[in-house]
Each structure stands twice: as structure tokens, then as C-alpha cells.
Write a protein that binds this DNA or RNA. Structure first.
Length: 559
RNA sequence: AGCCGGAUCGUCUAAUGGUAGGACAACGCCCUUUGGAGGCGUCUGUGUAGGUUCGACUCCUGCUCCGGCUGCCA
């Protein structure tokens, strides 16, 4: 198997498509789509669906549509349409000029509905929602026929026309398919096709006061667009016979629906309803709060489209219930940023360090490699002075036995500079360490050409004189339980919110080269993690988001 | 209870009657001016009971367990 073939893991959906292509089912055409309802922001589960659908279209030299399933005006908003377009584009799924809307097919759908009325397989029902619900039966008991089921075609046509013309109030009438009230599949018990909704639609305005139900509309949308493979999640499996029934009755083109299991991720929730509640109840700061599992949040946090694609390829697709470990997502972004992100030095929790044998007022520059994984990234100079900041965590007065960073009387290398030795610890009256007094060894300067001594530890630092101040936002998982959703003990996801999911550091010290960093730019802060410039940055006051920490074997030793 | 799905390492996913493999995680070792990256290695799995077969994750039967379905939401 070649390298290229290995990159695309086979899966049951591609197997089905291969089979169709072998027997010429769709004349070897492949046309997929991503059909979101614009009632919220897209999340990582949608990203999987987008990559799955677009990836198939791309690999089979087919087409991919972006289509908004905007059949319910009361929940849908233009803001969501715009965010969805932005997210799909950012992921790189190429829908060419095909940003489509179910609402563009409302006339066609209406005509189709009239056809079914004329054919005698759809009728207008004037019962209340309660009555209809009672007659639907349960999974164990068959439903009962509506008293209006045998209305004449003429009367149905008249009533349906008047529904459309706005002669009735919301809920007064519905159009129903006449199928089978005793079907073991509840979806076939005379499902509702149209309801009356005097609501403004974000695209059609007040043109319509009847709106198609999802089950009626969705199969038609795919049929109208000539979709070959309608890939959706498992909960629509029971609806497939209904879509097929509609298409059969109409005698129109049939796509093949294929269902796969919904995506779940540890330590988060994935339903739009729950994400919306996190936003509207103020548990997070908006849909793109970097702690959210939305695509826009991952973008803001510093994830790349490439890392999401790699992740999607790694998780695969199947029909069994699944919950992917968020560690795999983190691996995917580290893997990508390791190759791309320039290294810089930044101190998040600074403690002052003074080199007592370094002449006052003197300074020099050392050369640092921007990215050891990428020669083309070049080198830069970093300013070295008598007073520096290092990380509080990089000093232990009473060191752990495996701690090989700075400690009293101990030596450590300052990254790209020289070896220093800790001579004295200065504390304030409360016993807090406020300064470390050290000496440096001139023989060990970087680039001096002198054979270098080895020391066990290397730590990062910044010049106290030249460092710039910055805000850094550290994110942790939003929930402190691996599966905050779907508990059966009476608790719900809100009970598992992690109160420490955001830590804001206001006085981080950055090396001065960062002063010109642009919003969205990504860096590795050496030994700490990957960070990117947040949109909240202002001139002279940068704000960084921690995308993900580096793998940290020291944190494991400590446990 | 009825209908429809599903069950393979801790997690995700391959193997479509012929050596149960990969990735992540975990754990070792090597290397290292990032306790990063990289390299090498180890560990762990076919829900259950039968059947068919030279051979079963795969086919058949029973059982168990899990998920979805009773919106004028999608």
C-alpha cells in the first residue's frame, strides 16, 4: 500500500460508495452535502461531518454543497448563517458557488405537496396538537386514524390553499401524509408535512405562513440537488423509510441515505441546545469562547484547520456509539503546531533573577533558533541583561528528588545563554521568594565555541529590562467529568462545570520580539505550550490564548 | 413491550472465511541547550453460549448488554 493510500482510512461509507460505483448506481457520480440548520454555531461534531462529506466529494472527484436547512423561521438567524459559512470556509471545504437554502425550494415543495393531495395521499387535519399526539399511539400501541383522514381531495386542496393564503391562525390546521397509523415505525403514522407559522423567515420574509416539516423537506432538498449520498447521523435511520415513501409517491430522484454514529468528545457537551445554554446563561463568554467545542472557539484558541482534518482522519467513522478522548484532539494540534509555530520565550509567573557577577549596565545578544523543526524559520537575537525573569516553577528551595531545575547551590542552563548557579534566595517578610541571586559562568556562553559543560536542566528566561508585559489566558477543560452529559444519577452537565477552566495571567513577561505579533499568530512559548494572539489584543497590550500545553513528563513525575 | 441500530485493546478505528493491526493514552529505554520534538520497545482486545468450517472478529441460532424512536424541532 502506498503512502497516499494509507492516509485515507477506508470506512463503511466509502465501501458503500465503491459498491455503487462498481455497479453504476449513480452513473459513478458522487455528490455530498453538509445541511446545517442555522440555529447555532457549528461544533467539532459538525467539523467531522464537513470533513467526511467534503473529503468524500474531493477524493471521488465529486461535488459538495453547503445547504442551510432553514425550515423553521422561529429558531433561525442570519448571524448563524454567517458564522456557519465562515467556519466551513475556514475548514477548507470547497462548496464552490453552492451556498444553498432549503427556503429556495419552498415553491417546489409546495407544488410537490399539492401533487400528493391531488393523488389522495395527503390530507388537511384540523385537530389540536394534543389530539394528534394522543392518536399517534406509542411504540407498543398502534395509532388511530384522524377523523379528517377521509376528507375529499377537493376539500383538502381548498383547505391547503387557504392555509397557504394565510386564512388560518397558527396551529389551526396541518397537512399530513396519509400513510399508516398502525405502522411500527412511528414516523410513518401520518406525519405532518406542513404547519401554519405566521413568522418572518430570514430569507423569504413574510412570503410564507406555512412551513415544511424537516421530514417532508429534507429528502426533497437532497433529491432536488441531485445528492447521491445523504450522509447523516443515526437518529435519522428510522426516518429513511419516510423519505423514501415521499420520493416514491412523487416519482422523483432518490439519493441514498447513509447513517453514521454521532461524535462525542470527553470533558465536553455537544448538543446545540446545551451549548446555547452555556452561552445564554453566561457560563462562557460567547459561542467562540476558547473553552467551547465550537469550530469558531477552536479557531480563536489557536487550532488550525489542518489539525482538525488530521483529527477527523484519525477518529474514523462507524455506526457504534463512541466517545473520543480529547487527548487525541490535543495530540493533533501539537503535531501540527510543532512543525509550524516559531519558538519564543515567555515567563508566565515571573520571579526576578540577578546575576551578581554580570557587570551592571552591560548587555549582549544571543542567537536563538526560531524553530528546530523548520530550518526556513531562521534565527533571531535575544537580549541578555544582568536582571532577568524566570518562571517561579523553575526554582525549588527544597527540591523534589527528580527536580533538575534551579535550586540553592545548583546549576542550570539558561536557554541559548549560559550556565548559572544559584547563590542566594531573597525573601520578603512574609517568606515569599522575591529574588534569586545567581552567578553565571562566562565559559559557558552560547556560541562561545568553548566545549560546553553539561547540566541537567535548561530553563527559559526573559530580560527584565526588555521584556514586554502581556495578558495570557490559560484554559482548562470546561467540565471536570469525562462524561458530563447523560448521567443517570439526577445530575446534569451544569453540575460538572469546571470552576477553574479559565485562569487569567495579567503580568506575563514576553521576549520583546513578540511586540509585533498579529492577531491569530501562533507561537510555542518554550517549555510551556502553544499560544496564539487573541482578538482582544490592543496596541501595546497583547492578549494570548494558550492553545494547548506541551506534553509534560515532569507533571507526571510530581504525582 | 414494538420497530430500527450497535457490541474488537483504557479510547478511537482496521481486518469483509486465512498471522487480530494502527493511532492516541499508559509504561520503560535512548537522545536532547525545550523534562518539547524525535527514536526504540512494552502492555492491553473480538460481550456470551452453541453451531457450520481444515480454519470464524467475519456466516447461522439463542442469550446478554447498550443506543435511537411516542415535537405542529432538526
Amino acid at each position: 500500500m502506498s503512502e497516499n493510500e494509507k492516509l485515507v482510512q477506508s470506512n463503511f461509507i466509502r465501501d458503500i460508495i465503491d459498491e455503487h460505483n462498481r455497479n453504476g448506481h449513480f452513473e459513478n457520480r458522487v455528490h455530498t452535502r453538509f445541511p446545517p440548520e442555522p440555529n447555532g454555531y457549528l461544533h467539532i461534531g459538525h467539523a467531522k461531518s464537513i470533513c467526511l462529506n467534503y473529503g468524500i466529494a474531493r477524493d471521488y472527484k465529486g461535488k459538495f454543497n453547503l445547504r442551510f436547512d432553514d425550515t423553521n423561521p422561529v429558531k433561525e438567524e442570519v448571524e448563524y448563517v454567517e458564522s456557519i459559512i465562515e467556519d466551513v470556509k475556514w475548514l477548507g471545504a470547497d462548496f464552490e458557488d453552492r451556498i444553498l437554502f432549503a427556503s429556495d425550494y419552498f415553491d417546489q415543495m409546495y407544488e410537490y405537496a399539492v401533487q400528493l393531495v391531488e393523488k389522495g395521499v395527503a390530507y388537511v387535519d384540523g385537530q389540536t396538537p394534543e389530539q394528534i399526539r394522543e392518536q399517534r399511539g406509542t411504540p407498543n400501541e398502534p395509532g388511530k386514524n384522524s377523523p379528517h383522514r377521509e376528507r375529499s381531495i377537493e376539500e383538502n386542496l381548498d383547505l391547503f390553499t387557504r392555509m397557504k393564503n394565510g386564512e388560518f391562525k397558527d396551529g389551526e390546521y396541518v397537512l399530513r401524509a396519509k400513510i399508516d397509523m398502525s405502522s411500527p415505525n412511528i414516523n410513518l403514522r401520518d406525519p405532518i408535512m406542513y404547519r401554519i407559522l405566521h413568522a418572518d423567515h430570514h430569507r423569504t420574509g413574510d412570503k410564507w405562513c406555512i412551513y415544511p416539516m424537516y421530514d417532508w423537506a429534507h429528502g426533497l432538498e437532497d433529491s432536488i440537488e441531485g445528492i447521491t449520498h445523504s450522509i447523516c447521523t443515526l437518529e435519522f435511520e428510522n426516518h429513511r423509510p419516510l423519505y423514501d415513501w415521499y420520493l416514491d409517491q412523487l416519482g422523483v430522484y432518490h439519493p441514498q441515505q447513509i447513517e453514521f454514529a454521532r461524535f462525542n468528545l470527553t470533558y465536553t457537551v455537544m448538543s446545540k441546545r446545551k451549548l446555547l445554554s452555556l452561552v445564554s446563561d453566561g457560563h462562557v463568554n460567547g459561542w467562540n469562547d476558547p473553552r467551547m467545542p465550537t469550530i469558531s472557539a477552536f479557531r480563536r484558541r489557536g487550532y488550525t484547520p489542518e489539525s482538525l482534518w488530521a483529527f477527523t482522519d484519525k477518529i474514523g467513522v462507524a455506526k457504534r456509539e463512541n466517545t473520543t478522548d480529547v487527548a487525541l484532539l490535543e495530540y493533533s494540534i501539537r503535531e501540527d503546531l510543532n512543525k509550524k509555530a516559531n519558538r519564543v520565550m515567555a515567563v508566565l509567573n515571573p520571579v526576578k533573577l540577578v546575576l551578581t557577577n554580570y557587570p551592571e549596565g552591560q548587555e549582549e545578544e544571543f542567537e536563538a533558533v526560531n524553530n528546530p523543526e523548520d530550518e526556513n524559520a531562521g534565527k533571531r537575537k535575544i537580549k541578555f541583561t544582568r536582571e532577568l525573569y524566570i518562571e517561579q516553577d523553575d526554582f525549588q528551595e527544597v527540591p523534589h528528588k527528580k527536580f533538575f531545575r534551579l535550586q540553592p547551590g545548583g546549576e542550570v542552563r539558561l536557554r541559548y545563554a549560559c550556565i548559572i548557579k544559584c547563590e542566594e534566595v531573597i525573601k520578603d517578610e512574609a517568606g515569599n521568594i522575591i529574588e534569586l541571586r545567581c552567578t553565571f559562568d562566562p565559559e559557558t556562553k552560547s556560541g562561545s565555541g568553548i566545549p560546553q559543560r553539561k547540566v541537567k536542566g535548561t530553563i527559559h528566561w526573559v530580560s527584565a529590562k526588555y521584556a514586554i508585559d502581556s495578558e495570557v489566558r490559560l484554559y482548562d477543560r470546561l467540565f471536570n467529568d469525562e462524561n458530563p452529559d447523560g448521567k443517570k444519577d439526577g445530575t446534569n452537565y451544569l453540575d460538572y462545570l469546571n470552576p477553574n477552566s479559565l485562569e487569567v495571567i495579567t503580568n506575563a513577561k514576553l521576549e520583546p520580539s513578540l511586540a509585533s505579533a498579529a492577531v491569530g499568530e501562533k507561537f510555542q512559548f518554550e517549555r510551556l505550550g502553544y499560544f496564539c494572539v487573541d482578538q482582544d489584543s490592543e496596541k501595546g497590550r497583547l492578549v494570548f490564548n494558550r492553545t494547548v500545553t506541551l506534553r509534560d513528563s515532569w507533571s507526571k513525575i510530581q504525582k
